[in-house]
């Protein structure tokens, strides 16, 4: 109960600030200071959102699918690569710089090339999501594996533990907090990555919907899409937090021990 109250008071400033900005925005639009063709009012955005909800949902389903597949492949790839890079120093020396270089390539420059190679279907979108999500997760896992106290590894070896057992009982669990921080970032990257690659070629998805709305000068709909993307990203982050709490019950115990 007390925790809940604390939670609410913690979030109050953020909620008030957000409400203030939306109110100001509405006032500026309704009073005619900002013309509707430049910035649709919040009320207009919300009504566009609900007015075209079925259509929006169809497109969102496509984008979410691309993001989910991409994120899953990115996670699996990171899980496969990170232990290998951790185990074989030569591999790490060879590939770590390349991983960093792939992160400096602007998504928006990469997307058209991928479309050129893979066509207008889902493949280039998923690929782009994989490229953007893989890195934060792999780096998180790598750092996590290294965060184990060398004495813990010595102790386990002295107990006769194999390399696999040390990984399973010590290194992997130690990497989970970093993994989930990486996943949280990657989950929102995934949606944004999918939308961006849809802008640059495709038939379905929120990015396509956005491009069409822009061409039709339906700015209220464009903002409705942005609103939807924000909601989806927040939901995904929230989901990651829940997953994290389930996977690491000891963190909750530590928290309650401190209070």
């Amino acid at each position: 109960m007390k925790e809940k109250l604390e939670n609410i008071t913690n979030k109050l400033p953020a909620v008030l600030a957000l409400a203030g900005i939306i109110l100001l925005w509405q006032v500026l639009c309704s009073s005619g200071v900002l013309p509707a063709y430049m910035l649709p009012s919040p009320v207009a955005v919300v009504s566009a959102f609900f007015g075209d909800l079925p259509n929006l949902m169809t497109h969102a389903a496509v984008t979410l699918q691309e993001a989910a597949y991409g994120l899953m492949i990115g996670v699996v790839l990171a899980f496969v690569m990170a232990p290998l890079l951790d185990r074989f120093e030569l591999l790490q020396k060879a590939f770590y710089p390349i991983m960093i270089i792939t992160q400096t390539i602007p998504t928006i420059a990469l997307a058209p090339v991928l479309v050129l190679w893979m066509g207008f279907g889902m493949a280039p979108k998923i690929t782009l999501v994989v490229i953007t999500t893989f890195f934060p997760i792999a780096v998180g896992l790598l750092d996590g594996y290294k965060s184990v106290d060398p004495d813990t590894i010595r102790l386990m070896r002295a107990m006769g533990a194999s390399r696999v057992q040390i990984f399973r009982h010590a290194q992997f669990p130690a990497a989970l907090p970093q993994f989930f921080s990486g996943l949280k970032i990657s989950a929102s990257y995934a949606v944004v990555g999918a939308v961006i690659s849809e802008w640059l070629g495709g038939f379905e998805g929120l990015g396509v919907y956005m491009t069409r709305s822009r061409k039709a000068y339906a700015f209220d709909r464009m903002f409705a899409v942005i609103l939807l993307i924000v909601i989806i990203s927040l939901l995904l982050m929230w989901l990651v937090n829940i997953l994290r709490d389930i996977s690491m019950p000891h963190l909750r115990a530590e928290h309650s021990a401190r209070n």
Partner: peptide, 25 residues
Amino acid sequence: PGKISYMLQKDLLLPHKKIIDNVSL
């Protein structure tokens, strides 16, 4: 390794395991 047990100043209990799982490791 594995024949003699070893204990350090640091307890080196694994933070994510319950005590019973730590000691029975």
